[in-house]
């Protein structure tokens, strides 16, 4: 049974930030509610106040600003899938959001909620980390911008202060010669939390079968979504074939630190990190 909290319903962002400035310690914001309502229902959290963000239309926009895409915190996974802007400018993020939950969960769940929940298995996060996206945090006193990678501290832990809201996410638009791939392993195709996942972003090199830049993010394979910098370096600026790709992707096991839980063992997750990474790069280099 959900506890009896007080509800605040700001109409604008400044009003919301004013409320958080005053009562931030007690307030739990709610966006789509798909994570929060589950936690309220089973009593894992018992806030004294809940702030309904649903009237803050200014946080629902997707905008092109120069070479960057700005996605408001309240943009839903469905909006990411359906917006012509994200489809052309952020295809890797589209691939991630497409694998979230079910249609209903994607219609309700937001990017800001996925980030704030900071699950190591959150499906929009690997794409954001691989794209070197930034998160804008707003408080009454002003705004600060952090790389998404630094924003995530541990399972369920972020750099967000109680008086701050996630305002938006900024990522660089896709350019000619760039490719991405998101590869999720779940127990089934829908309504499945990632057992392991990997997002890969590359810039193709001038010579055939080379990559001039590589970014890799592993999900559900460490306490937070994690960059694979060793593998990235090993893949950059060298001619790749099936054999060398197979060799280099083995390095992935050194980059991840998975746990054993009800969904899979640590050893299985390590093996899957390598397999998912190999598949993704194979797809990018030789199949697309």
């Amino acid at each position: 049974m959900v506890n009896d909290f007080r509800l605040v319903r700001p109409k604008t962002l400044p009003e919301a930030l004013g409320l958080l400035d005053e009562f931030g310690q007690e307030i739990e914001p709610v966006a789509g509610g798909t994570d929060l309502l589950v936690k309220l229902e089973d009593g894992r959290i018992r806030p004294s106040q809940v702030m309904d963000l649903s009237a803050l239309n200014e946080l629902k926009q997707i905008r092109l600003v120069g070479e960057d895409l700005h996605l408001g915190a309240l943009v839903t996974h469905t909006a990411v899938l359906e917006s012509p802007l994200t489809r052309t400018e952020a295809p890797l993020l589209v691939m991630g959001c497409r694998t979230v939950g079910s249609t209903q969960i994607r219609n309700m769940g937001t990017l800001g909620g996925n980030l704030a929940t900071a699950s190591p298995a959150g499906d929009s996060i690997p794409a954001l980390v691989a794209l070197e996206a930034k998160v804008v945090l707003a408080s009454k006193k002003g705004e600060r911008t952090l790389p998404v990678e630094d924003f995530l501290v541990g399972p369920g832990k972020t750099e967000r202060r109680r008086e701050e809201l996630i305002k938006e996410i900024i990522l660089p638009c896709a350019r000619e010669g760039e490719k991405g791939f998101y590869n999720k392993l779940g127990q089934r195709n829908a309504l499945a939390i990632s057992i392991a996942n990997v997002a890969v972003w590359v810039r193709l090199g001038e010579r055939k079968n080379t990559l001039s830049r590589v970014r890799i993010a592993f999900g559900a394979l460490a306490p937070t979504v994690k960059r694979g910098r060793m593998v990235e370096d090993a893949l950059t600026d060298r001619e790749l074939d099936e054999a060398s790709l197979k060799g280099i992707t083995q390095l992935a096991w050194k980059e991840v630190a998975p746990i054993t839980d009800i969904r899979a063992s640590a050893q299985y997750r390590r093996d899957m990190a390598i397999a998912l990474l190999y598949q993704s790069l194979y797809h990018i280099l030789f199949l697309s």
């Binding site: 509800l7 319903r9 509610g33 589950v38 209903q104 309700m108």
Partner: peptide, 27 residues
């Protein structure tokens, strides 16, 4: 808790789960 879809309703034409929607979000 969001897993079965039996509570699905349309909110402005989109399928959502009524069990995970606080009433104020219908305003």
């Amino acid at each position: 808790k969001g897993e079965c879809g039996a509570c699905t309703v349309l909110l402005d034409g989109e399928a959502v789960l009524a069990c995970l929607t606080l009433i104020s979000q219908a305003e």
